Simulated assay, not measured.
Amino acid sequence: MTIRNPGIALDPTLFEHAQVNTPAALRRAESLSTRRALKQQWQAAWLVKAMACIDLTTLAGDDTPQRVARLCAKARNPLRRDLVAGLGLEAAPPKVAAVCVYPSMVPAAVRALQGSGIPVASVATGFPAGLTPMRERLAEIDHALGEGAREIDVVITRSHALGQHWGALYEEVQAMRARCGAAQMKAILATGDLKTLRNVYKASMVAMMAGADVIKTSTGKEEVNATLPVSLVMCRAIRDYRDATGYAIGFKPAGGIRSARDALHWLTLMNEELGRDWLEPDLLRIGASALLGDIERQLEHHVTGRYGALHQHAMV
């Protein structure tokens, strides 16, 4: 079992002189998407693994308790029973890692997931911009936890990273972590707003030092969300933090991950950069909704030789 990251004192020497070779990062990321793809049973096995790492998400302005309940029903049974049987998974049918919703939707998700063992994750702290007063941001964590959330996805103040105010970012994330208590805390860096890969690396290191259990690429609301180059830099930061402290930090790409092929790229990145442990939901989460439908569609083809229409794999 992964030992939870307690955080460490802010140590700028671990990141202040960091350099990122952007062309090299871009080439490395491109290599992940151009190499020969996994095929047949190996692809199916990796897609089942990806399914188990999904934080099935709805963060829309028109969310309703009924919509959340339907999403939770899909979370309980992400794969049709005939496909479960065809893959030989009846003894341990797959389910997703968590369901992620707004704080006001947490009670509906908790009710719908009762007895499933699937935790409810809630965004908080002024999601997605993170620009509400700190007192209100922390109160939102309290509210989500009080309603039954077991995981909290917080957003950082981007201006701290853009202005290189690392002490302020550290104190902010540390306060959020303290408020989360026993709940898992995922720190959303909103990397599309951070402008440079060097800022992404530094913000990742500071968030981990402040006690983040997971670092997450995006809210899904930025103009640019999860990308492989950004994810590569974050994985290298996770590796450096582990080497310096011994603590393993989780990673969550989110936003724009829609196809099964995308999921395989991120699993490959995790396996090659961080190792086998990062192919499990303890250390890898994929924030997505449409992704699940395409994974199910690909697994249907593996079992039956036919592709079902996407509407046959609707989320809600």
Rank of each mutant, 00 (worst) to 15 (best):
E90Y: 04
A91G: 12
P93F: 03
P94N: 11
A97T: 06
C100D: 02
S104G: 07
V110M: 01
V110F: 10
L113Y: 11
L113E: 02
G115H: 13
S116V: 14
V120P: 01
A121Y: 09
S122A: 11
S122F: 02
F127T: 05
F127I: 08
T132D: 10
P133C: 10
R135W: 10
E136V: 07
L138Y: 07
A139L: 10
A139G: 06
E140H: 00
I141K: 04
G146C: 12
A149K: 04
A149M: 03
A149I: 00
I152K: 01
D153C: 08
D153F: 11
V155H: 05
V155Q: 00
R158P: 14
R158S: 14
H160G: 06
L162I: 14
G163K: 11
G167T: 15
L169R: 03
E171P: 01
Q174E: 06
A178G: 03
A178D: 04
A178Y: 04
R179D: 02
C180Q: 01
A182E: 15
M185G: 05
K186H: 09
A187F: 05
A190V: 11
G192N: 06
D193N: 15
D193T: 14
L194K: 01
L197V: 04
R198S: 13
N199C: 10
M205Q: 12
V206T: 13
M209G: 06
I215T: 05
T217V: 08
K221A: 12
E223P: 14
